[in-house]
Each structure stands twice: as C-alpha cells, then as structure tokens.
Design a protein around this nucleic acid. Sequence first.
DNA 1: TATGATT
Length: 384
Amino acid sequence: REWIILWRIISTMETQVSNGPTANSLPNGPVVSTNGSTDDSKTNLIVNYLPQNMTQEEFKSLFGSIGEIESCKLVRDKITGGFLFLNFSGILTEIKWESTKRNPLFHSQSLGYGFVNYVDPNDADKAINTLNGLKLQTKTIKVSYARPSSASIRDANLYVSGLPKTMSQKEMEQLFSQYGRIITSRILVDQVTGISRGVGFIRFDKRNEAEEAIKGLNGQKPLGAAEPITVKFANNPSQKTGQALLTQLYQTAARRYTGPLHHQTQRFSSPSLLPRFSPITIDSMTSLAGVNLTGPTGAGWCIFVYNLSPEADESVLWQLFGPFGAVTNVKVIRDFTTNKCKGFGFVTMTNYDEAAMAIASLNGYRLGDRVLQVSFKTSKQHKA
DNA sequence: TATGATT
C-alpha cells in the first residue's frame, strides 16, 4: 500500500446561524407576511467586506445593536470531513473529503460576508445608514439590501485575466456593463507596487448575463489592448479542493514550524540524497489542531521549475523543495481544458539562502525521465 | 509546451 491514513478528520463546517428557527433553511429566515407569502426585501441585508476574524457572535452583536434581528448568519467556507494521507516517508500527500462531522484540525474561514434579517424594515434601513462604510480593522464594511435568493443569481461571478495593466476597475466595468447589471467588480493588484495584476472579477446580477459576457468578451482584445483577455466563471471560494486544503495545511505548518524546521532540515548538495522530509510530520501534526487556515502570505522568493511531466502535481513540488527549508506555496500550472501540467510550476520559499540552495541542488535534477530546470522566476521574456 | 496568478 502506498498510502497510510494518518488521521481521520472529523469536521463540521456549516454556516453558523445564531438564532431563529431557520438554521437549515435558506440563507435568511423567511419573514411570513400576513398574506402568507415571504418578502424579505425590506428587512434582509447583506454585509460585505467583514474582517476575516470577526465571529458570528460579534457580527450578531454589532447588527443587533440597531434593532431586533429575526436571523443572521456569517457565511463561512464549507469543509467536509475526510482523511489525511501520508506515504511511508512521512510526507503528507493527499487529503480526501467525505461527509460532514466535527473537525478538530481545521477551522472554517469566514468568507467575509453575512446576512442580517431584521424584524422591522425601519431597523434594516437604519442599519444601512448607520453601519454602511463602518471601518473595522483594515476593512470598510458594506451594508446593503440583499437580493432575493434565487437560482438565477447563482454562479454569476466571472474571473477575468489578461487585462491591460493600465485598465482601471471603472474601465473594466464599462467593458462588461453592456452584458448586464454588475453587482461587484474588482481588479487584483500587486501587494507591494499597487500595480494591477491584470486579473479581476465581475459579478453580474444574473447568471445568463455572465454567460453572455463570456461569449462576447472571452478571447477578445479590449479597445487599444495588445493582448486578448480571458473571461470565465470564477471558482467558488467556498468549495475548497483537497489540494487547496493540502496547500493551506503546508503553509500553516511551514509558518508555525519555521523554527524547529531549520534544525530538523538537512541540506544536501546532491539531489540524489534528498531526504524525504516535509514540514508536516506526525509529531508536528498533533499540535496543528485548531489552527485557523489563512491564505498565502505573498512574501518570499519565487522559483520557476521547468520540465515537469504532464502528470505532475503539487505534492511533487512539496517533496522536492520541502527538504531545503520553508516553502510557503507551490503551484503546478495546468492546461485549463485537460487539467494536465503544462510542464512548469512555481515554488515560493521564505528564505533566500534556502531558495538558492534548492535551485543549486535541483537544477539539472533527474525526475523520472526528465531533467528539471530550476531558477528564480524572472519576468516573462521572449526568445531572442 | 520555458514564467502563473481565482477576491
């Protein structure tokens, strides 16, 4: 057997509902009017840009200060129970998920938004006037009426890449607004320079509007742009894959165990002597219980790895680079349609000397029948 | 197949 099961993960990652009888119903408790129909449109609010660490209790307390709440919920990611897999060398390689239960290993993360349904429409109005724009830590919260829940507004979020770096959010909205009503938009920027990464998101009011925008804009060049843009449906952030969770687990462990890791890690100049070591061992795993998973930190040295096989996955990068020190992120670049590796990937390491050692050791390393080329990532260059 | 990017 190649794999052994290390831990049975038991988890519950349901959306929390603080009160009301509607814990397992729609996002918001229905208000039954005198004629028997439900209409939340004047009482039900959506709150966006909440601080990551805000709890359900704090959320309820803040909005409860305005008036009586019929129900409220902070939306969190849904993680089901599953298994962690280690191979015999002690490397965590896979997480598989199954049905839901309690989870001592992962805390589900707030998705940064929630719903509040007031008893009195006047309180909903007051909450918008009082709390919209409120600054909480680094966030400025947005409070607005929630659109009625329906299938037609689901999956209307688009991921856009290849945007000209000069394009503003407003210009992007102008480009997309011909296809429907835009609910939200965003352009991602480099954390250090503040320059656009050429990647953005557009949420339409309706799914069919988003579909039309894909048909009309995917592969098209915006006016004056040199390159065509890619437009596709965005991933749903609440549906984490096992690989994404594995990545998060490694990142959590790498950050938490940076100290001990340095002592445990041996450095080998010869790739053939690579120890099978990863940040997560049985010992360190036991104290991972209850950690809050957070996203990648961004800082570090980015390494380009070329000549990976089409079957390569993230675990091979963890296994190759983990022995050299703190690895915060790995990424295998895959073809969108085939999901096969396009032959290259990226690894982010925290410390320069460890990254340099990894490059010196792994460049030219024979992996199966391929010889890897490993270097610091450079900006995109065309062949002379 | 030689430098991505998923709030």
